Amino acid sequence: MTPAPARSLRVAVLASGWAGFNDAACRELAARGVELLVVTPTTAPDTNYADLGFGEYAQVHLWHGAPADGEITEVVRAFAPDAVLMHSWHFRPYRAAVKALPAGTLRVCWMDNVWRNVAKQWAGRVVAPWWVQSIFDCVMVPSDRTEFFARRLGFGEDQVIRGSLTADTSMFGSGPRTGEEIAGHRTFLACQRLVHHKGADVLAEAYRRYRAASADPWDLAVAGLGPLASDFAGLEGVHMLGFQQPAELAELMRSVSAFVLPSRIDPYGVALHEAAVSGLPLITTYQVGAAPFFVQDGQNGWTVASGDAGALAASMTHMAALADTTEGVARLGEMSDLSRALGSRTSSAGWARNLHEQIGWRLEELRAQPTR
């Protein structure tokens, strides 16, 4: 008698928003034979993604404003997942859905926030035994900074799945780029939401200072939406591009000289990884969680203090000055090579492989335990 085929692994993703890099990673997960349910709001602030087509590889449930009572719970229960990944561990409709899952379901807290020593986080530590540990089996984090926060919420070393975020490396990845090509574009690129915590106002002031002090300044291309777009009004050399779809942004990154991410607070910053695999020299701040992964100071760019327009302007000056000498142009090529090398440490396919394996291993351990 022929045995019945093994049931595919079923994973539900309860998301706070969906972006191109999420789409690329989950497409790779689906390509490994994993059945997916994606639950997400229809829109996220200051974004304008076209249809990413995730209905091609996943069951999708979109909600707008606020889900109806019990709506998410019913959708997840009907899907009957083996594992659920949940963003926004404070969001009550998602919490209710996770709490209603039967024993033997792996419940993963998918977080990217970093410890900032603020009152809200201290309160979170106090209630974590009931609010976090009571409903999650493990946590998935993008960096050691987020892991530090997760450990303060009570997750043990063995409860951490590392490497939770990645750029769409197949789309943004670039072949080798020469220093001459990079120098010839003479343009900085910023891709970000134009809001306070992303440092849009700092970038505008830094570029104003840089341009005033430079005899032959580079331009600045700004890709993004947000209320601080007005801070760039009237600035000579600035090109406001609005929101760029992933494929458009990937092409844009291949047509500029350096990438700038000036965030005051940025738990990770996937755009920095996108710029690295695109082969761009990088300027960013310490507060960008991805900076330790993709920026080696003095080697492929610089990390400056957040909120410091003067330091950001100085780094832009240092970067642009490299295009003025033969030695500097060669260094831009070396910066590009190192960015690509650092960017290659993770990928969409690698993300999917790791998560697939981690869920399988952890489910096996969970289901071997006595029913709780």
Rank of each mutant, 00 (worst) to 15 (best):
T2V: 12
A4S: 11
A6S: 04
S8K: 04
V11L: 03
S16V: 11
G17F: 10
W18G: 03
A19T: 14
C26E: 14
A30F: 00
R32D: 00
V34E: 00
L36I: 01
L37T: 04
V39P: 08
T40Q: 09
P41D: 06
D46V: 09
F54G: 02
W63K: 03
H64W: 09
A68N: 09
A68Y: 01
E71F: 04
E74W: 13
V76N: 07
V76M: 07
R77H: 11
D82I: 05
A103S: 09
L106R: 01
R107V: 03
R107S: 06
M111I: 12
A119S: 00
P129A: 00
W130M: 02
R145L: 08
A150Y: 00
G154I: 01
G156L: 11
D158S: 15
R177D: 05
A183H: 04
G184F: 01
L189P: 14
H197P: 07
A206L: 06
A213F: 02
S214T: 06
V222G: 11
G226C: 10
D231C: 15
D231Q: 15
L235K: 12
L241T: 10
P246W: 05
A247S: 07
L252D: 14
S255V: 07
S257L: 02
S263Q: 05
R264P: 08
D266T: 05
P267S: 03
V270K: 05
A271T: 15
A275Y: 05
A276E: 11
G279N: 02
L280N: 04
L280T: 05
L282Q: 06
V288G: 04
F293I: 12
F294H: 14
V295K: 07
V295F: 10
A313C: 03
A321L: 04
A323G: 08
A323P: 10
D324V: 12
T326F: 12
T326W: 12
E327R: 10
G328E: 05
A330V: 14
R331I: 13
T346Y: 13
A352Y: 04
R353I: 09
L355R: 03
E365D: 13
A368K: 14
Q369K: 14
